[in-house]
Write a protein that binds this DNA or RNA. Structure first.
Lengths: 208, 208
DNA sequence: TTATAATTGTATCGAGAGGTACAAATTCCT
DNA sequence: AGGAATTTGTACCTCTCGATACAATTATAA
């Protein structure tokens, strides 16, 4: 008993979303044309519009998909027991993701629409908001850490969260510019020097 | 005695370049249309093409203009006497420039074309090269510093230069996202914590 | 005065952008 | 079998893109 009447869809929604993600990731929102999308997704234009709405709607769906599939390391990092480990997992997780050979280099949430024309400006602001949400989550985690005595009293969670996000954004630009995974790891090492605590499981265990 | 025959130009080249810069800076290479440019520059299309070539040529001219007028702080920083002062001036100079209220927020060299369609890809690569040139200049300055005993032997100039550029790129993204000058200064303060030396004239003198 | 050389403004070009109308095709429900 | 409902593919729409043709205009040089 099929709940849906009418001719069934001949393509897989998630597979199509994944293809769309890869194109948006490489070319950005403005740089991606409808022809790019339909070619990569293997469907024609009316099917795309019927399934996802217009280009802007599709991009937001892609952003959600991207957050679930490629930014899960943030949630993992926030679940780490100590503030130091949170920062360490955050930066190393970002380094791994940004230079994953199976995906385009860099971060869609940064290079998707950093600056753009008037048409795409709402997309640009949307991603600013989403980045701010991520930063707020980090800040709240670090505030909890300080209340637990896990951070010194002279360490300000808001400043540390801002700093962490800045390093991640900087690494995104570097990755988009062709930086290797090893270079990103060196950046993480330099950045973690300023963290108010010592010792990294990544260094100790030879992680990755 | 005029050296040039023919009808004289009725607009100022540098003023037009400055107007073009502001548009490219806000909207990026792809997000800027010829109509945007001619409107902002106060000239019509054939005048633009006669004076600057096509859109791509104009953008390269704008990049040169931008480097001279808005990235001079890098040269100043590299002329500082100590490695620590170089880094300090570099980051604080970037913070000032990126949040200058007289110009669009962020850095044209980053957000001009971080990711884009096929048409603009050569522009994207051009800016990757220019950023790499800047990083190389910093690295060479730090290598000199180490040879002068100005940096500890376990400090690697290549890693430090990469780290500095990454923080600057990250601040560029933050500025483009609406970060204030004060926030950027806090980022600099956090980033300088990891530098292998102490004491900042910015902090001591209450610079800016 | 005439020829030459450059700029300016209008009007337009072909190509590609995002988005849709519409009929054929394929399924479920009665 | 015969609708009702949905997807698919082709063809097309309007709009904007970057780029130019061309004549009128304004200067210098002979």
């Amino acid at each position: 008993m099929n709940m849906v009447v009418g001719r069934p869809r001949t393509f897989d929604i998630d597979k199509a979303l994944d293809r769309a993600l890869m194109v948006f990731w490489r070319k950005g929102y403005e740089g991606t044309s409808l022809a790019d999308l339909t070619n990569a997704m293997g469907i024609n234009r009316p099917s795309l519009y019927a399934a996802f709405g217009n280009k802007e709607d599709l991009f937001r769906r892609v952003l959600d998909y991207y957050s679930q599939r490629h930014m899960a390391f943030i949630g993992d990092a926030l679940n780490q027991p100590t503030a130091w480990s949170v920062a360490d997992h955050l930066l190393n997780g970002a380094a791994d993701m940004l230079s994953d050979p199976g995906t385009p280099p860099g971060c869609l949430m940064v290079q998707g629409a950093l600056s753009c024309g008037d048409n795409a400006d709402c997309i640009r602001r949307e991603m600013i908001t989403r980045r701010a949400v991520g930063e707020a989550a980090i800040r709240e985690r670090l505030e909890r850490a300080r209340s637990e005595g896990d951070l010194p009293a002279n360490a300000y969670p808001a400043d540390l969260a801002l700093y962490l996000m800045t390093v991640i954004h900087g690494m995104s630009v570097q990755a988009a510019s062709g930086a290797t995974h090893d270079e990103l790891r060196r950046i993480v090492k330099a950045a973690m020097r300023s963290w108010p605590k010592q010792g990294s499981v990544y260094q100790k265990n030879g992680y990755r």
